[in-house]
């Protein structure tokens, strides 16, 4: 059986490689649960000897002890922000949810108008939308910053949300999918006297569910992990999302290894929600990617 032996043998290095994929995650996990003295010990422990939650909240910490073997836990930091680290989690969740719901609504409306209604000029509009996808988004970064500054939206939820609502890619994807919905359904609804808004919401949207699910996952993920735009518009700690808060933790603490348990704890809390969502909706993820080639 020459055929079955080779693939099995050839896979062993790949299985090992698969395990090394986990090493960074594992290293984050152990660091987040090590007390400071163990964290900075040489050689490092590969299983925390004395697992603790100090990195999240250290009951023995008082501000007088600063600089000794005790550092403030994650939820004891950002004292000038009401809610501390929890506020960043709220900001991330709120912004990602708002952008996902609103951008999908707007994009599906636009996609309906572009596919199911005989609009003069719609071909040109669609070509412009597709062409815009060729330009890297960073090209519009500086003017958008100036626009948001002039609107007085720096450091605000509007600044996060409004510029992120026009997603050409989502319209493109939904148009592709909507074309596969038979026009007869729409015609039949029109004959029955339904208006366009009603047909969009009652007839077409329910049939769009798989496409909407794929796009929702894609947008939520991208917004939850969004960094460069928030980095530019956020001025005070209280408006930071999780990635920006992580970056600020890094900037002020990364030169002292004692703080890395806290940094890893924050990284853990930032990555855990998306990993859990991925594990639950895995089928939608991979199908959406295979269908459209979304960058995850």
């Amino acid at each position: 059986m020459r055929r079955s032996l080779w693939p099995t043998l050839g896979r062993i290095p790949l299985y090992l490689f698969g395990l090394t994929m986990l090493v960074p995650f594992y290293w984050m996990l152990t660091a987040a649960f090590k007390p400071v003295p163990e964290l900075t010990r040489n050689p490092p422990s590969f299983v925390p000897n004395d697992p603790s939650l100090d990195a999240f909240y250290d009951p023995s910490y008082t501000s007088e002890q600063r600089g000794q073997q005790v550092v403030a836990g994650l939820f004891q930091r950002f004292g000038d922000v009401p809610g501390g680290f929890g506020r960043f989690m709220f900001n991330s969740l709120f912004v990602a949810t708002a952008i996902t719901v609103l951008s999908l609504l707007l994009a599906s409306l636009a996609a309906y108008a572009l596919t199911k209604i005989d609009l003069p000029g719609k071909r040109v509009i669609f070509v412009v939308i597709v062409a815009s996808m060729m330009v890297p988004w960073q090209v519009s970064l500086i003017p958008n910053y100036l626009i948001v500054r002039n609107l007085g939206w720096l450091n605000s939820y509007e600044g996060y949300i409004v510029p992120a609502l026009a997603k050409a890619f989502v319209v493109f994807f939904l148009v592709q999918y909507m074309r596969s919905i038979p026009d007869d359904l729409v015609h039949a609804a029109r004959v029955d006297g339904a208006g366009e808004w009603r047909i969009w919401w009652r007839v077409v949207m329910p049939l769009m569910r798989p496409a909407l699910a794929a796009m929702a996952i894609f947008v939520v993920l991208a917004e939850w992990n969004n960094f460069l735009w928030p980095l530019i518009i956020v001025q005070s700690d209280s408006m930071a999302n999780l990635p920006v808060a992580l970056s600020r933790l890094n900037a002020s603490n990364a030169y002292n290894p004692q703080h890395f348990a806290v940094i890893m704890a924050a990284s853990l809390l930032t990555s855990l929600p998306t990993v859990i969502v991925f594990l639950i909706f895995q089928k939608h993820f991979t199908r959406g990617i295979a269908l459209s080639g979304i960058k995850g």
């Binding site: 960074p24 660091a31 992990n225 999780l242 890094n250 990284s267 853990l268 930032t270 990555s271 993820f285």
Partner: peptide, 17 residues
């Protein structure tokens, strides 16, 4: 596929560590 869904900032911090 896990790294693709993990925050790039969190991942970068892990590598820094």
């Amino acid at each position: 596929f896990l790294p693709a869904v993990t925050s790039t900032i969190a991942v970068a911090l892990i590598w820094r560590w």
